[in-house]
Design a binder for these strands. Structure first.
Lengths: 235, 235
DNA sequence: CGGCTCATTGATAACTCTCAACGCAGGTGG
DNA sequence: CCACCTGCGTTGAGAGTTATCAATGAGCCG
């Protein structure tokens, strides 16, 4: 029987607002679930039946148009909250980008629990406000930045978000040189940035050619010149 | 002395969660304020010192880049909540588009009040979740839609949002014909859609030429063929 | 070693932006 | 009362960026 005690995100997720008894009560209505890369937890347009906490992995929130165009509207990392509590239909699907572990609740159960635990709702509110801020900042990128600015901003954002997990600044490496593995395919990067896969690829190639990044493999990126990348990102 | 009893949004704003005594307590820490069109209530980047409810008018939330590019990241209408409770700096400015009346609170006071009134926090959470949904839907527009789809989507969104105030479907008018006044200049529309003013203007002209809308004056729009507009919007 | 998927590269087209001129409306002052 | 000025919007011509279409290349697994 799995307990929350050893949970990797026990102190960072919204659960941090709960004491021992409360966490046991919450644990009783939740269950762990593992998702393979590419597997979906929630589908766009369906009634909101599930909510969850991310324990491990990276997942995308995405909406699409009938003709197949897709936009990734959010990316969630460990300790982030997933789903739409308090009614409504989910306006975006949730799909694992990497193998992931999540802590799932039925929305009804969670709603009930949250309603009787103001501290939990408070944490959830803070997180939602934070996510709204982040989302709005991303709108500036989508609406006003050029392809090169978008790609540079994307890489910088990703390094920051991945930091808690993979402090991959090798001991002994030059300062400012960071290496990490992309949880995204080129198509998914394009869907985050509102570009095509070809444009993303060309920007990667260009940044590599200018010595700002290196690309040891499809999924790996090394940031060689972070200040240059910041300039590329347009501030 | 102004009371909340006659407030236009008493039953729609987050205040609706409060009983008579509570509303009086909240009233005691808030004050009314009128904003002229173009006047700002909150500036991008400053510490969050104010929060507010919109009583009347339309306001924009906007962020910009050093070089002057601007993106409107949200538009708020009567009964909507403004500002960033629970710390942090405001990542976007808030500016009145039309003459507006708001109910302002110091953030510190509001935070304290909210923390001791779970029902208010619950309402605020619901509203924030709703706003996040709306914002994410807008990301699909910014990232994936063409100029014509953007403008059509914008008009349809606006009609819907303006509806509570101005049910301007004239008695006796053909069904589906709606007239309303834009709370935006062409530049502001461009800033909402991530386009230039010229592109917006050309799309308006084209829609008019195709008989889908009419433009009696700069600020007035008549939707003549809503189904066509829906098709233009790309679903 | 194929056969697959995914990424890169190239050539071209399309869309939107940029720059520039003009037009319209409202307000001001002669 | 009209002329002018100013701000905003429209229109046009051309350039630039990104998308589209197509082919090639690299890695992975059977």
């Amino acid at each position: 029987m799995s307990s929350c005690d050893q949970c990797l995100v026990r102190n960072r997720a919204i659960c941090a607002s709960l004491d021992k008894d409360e966490i046991n009560a919450l644990n009783a209505i939740g269950r762990r679930r593992t998702l393979a890369a590419g597997e979906s937890l929630i589908w766009e347009g369906e009634d909101s039946v599930l909510v969850a906490n991310v324990i491990e992995g990276v997942l995308k929130l995405a909406t699409g148009m009938e003709d197949g165009r897709e936009q990734i509207v959010g990316v969630v990392y460990p300790s982030d909250f997933i789903g739409r509590p308090f009614g409504g239909t989910t306006s975006h699907g949730v799909t694992a980008l990497t193998e992931s572990r999540v802590c799932v609740f039925s929305r009804r159960d969670f709603d009930g629990f949250a309603s009787s635990h103001p501290a939990l709702e408070h944490k959830l509110l803070q997180r939602t406000l934070q996510e709204l801020d982040r989302t709005r900042r991303w709108m500036l990128l989508l609406g006003r930045k050029s392809a090169s600015e978008k790609v540079a901003s994307f890489l910088l954002d990703l390094v920051e978000r991945l930091a808690p997990a993979t402090c991959d600044t090798h001991a002994g490496a030059e300062p400012g040189v960071t290496r990490f593995t992309l949880p995204f395919s080129r198509q998914q990067i394009a869907d985050v940035l509102g570009l095509t896969i070809e444009t993303v690829s060309r920007q990667f190639t260009r940044l590599k050619g200018e010595g700002i990044i290196d690309l040891p493999s499809r999924r790996d990126v090394v940031i060689l010149d972070r200040p240059a990348l910041v300039i590329e990102s347009g501030g």
